[in-house]
């Protein structure tokens, strides 16, 4: 079963054990370098195995594109904060944007036949397949994704 997506009210908890943190302007051209940096950091801490690397990059890509393009509307006056850490035996990546968030109803249901031919809307469904937790706070402007340490 894919991991359920939860939208919680208010602010998320702090990550107890922060390993790495960055703040970037909402500029899409910075995304790929950032992904490489996070990937290297996670590899260095033994948080990702080679067989799962494509899943990690897919999830990071989806989360960062959503924060930069949809959250901050690619306005580089607004920052995106990214934090990597550990919590309850899992690695956690938290991404905060400055947008208005979204509602879970706005995500196309990939089980519906009508969604099959859409050219967008598959990212969160794919993330749910691999992650152990996919949570949102602040109306969707904070993403929290986690998975057990291999």
């Amino acid at each position: 079963m894919p991991t359920p997506v939860h939208m919680f009210p208010g602010d998320p908890p702090q990550i107890p054990d922060v390993l790495w943190r960055r703040t970037i302007p909402a500029r899409l051209s910075l995304k790929d370098g950032l992904m490489e940096e996070i990937e290297a950091e996670m590899s260095g801490h033994g948080l990702i195995i080679d067989e799962d690397r494509h899943w990690l990059l897919l999830c990071l890509d989806e989360a960062l594109v959503n924060a930069i393009l949809h959250g901050n509307e690619a306005d580089d006056a607004f920052p995106v904060d990214i934090t990597l850490g550990l919590a309850s035996g899992r690695w956690v990546i938290r991404i905060d944007d400055q947008g208005h968030g979204f509602t879970l109803d706005s995500i196309p249901d990939q089980e519906e036949d009508d969604s099959l031919f859409l050219e967008h809307g598959r990212g969160i469904r794919l993330m749910r397949e691999w992650l152990d937790e996919l949570h949102y706070w602040r109306g969707g402007a904070t993403l929290w994704m986690s998975r057990g340490i291999p």
Binding site: R53, H54, L57, L58, D61, E62, V65, F117, L118, E119, H120, G121, R122, G123, L126
Partner: peptide
């Protein structure tokens, strides 16, 4: 070896 959901969307557009 690595792709994004955006590429999968483009693949669907191409198929259509």
């Amino acid at each position: 070896g690595y792709l994004s959901s955006s590429f999968i969307g483009k693949l669907m557009a191409l198929f259509k």
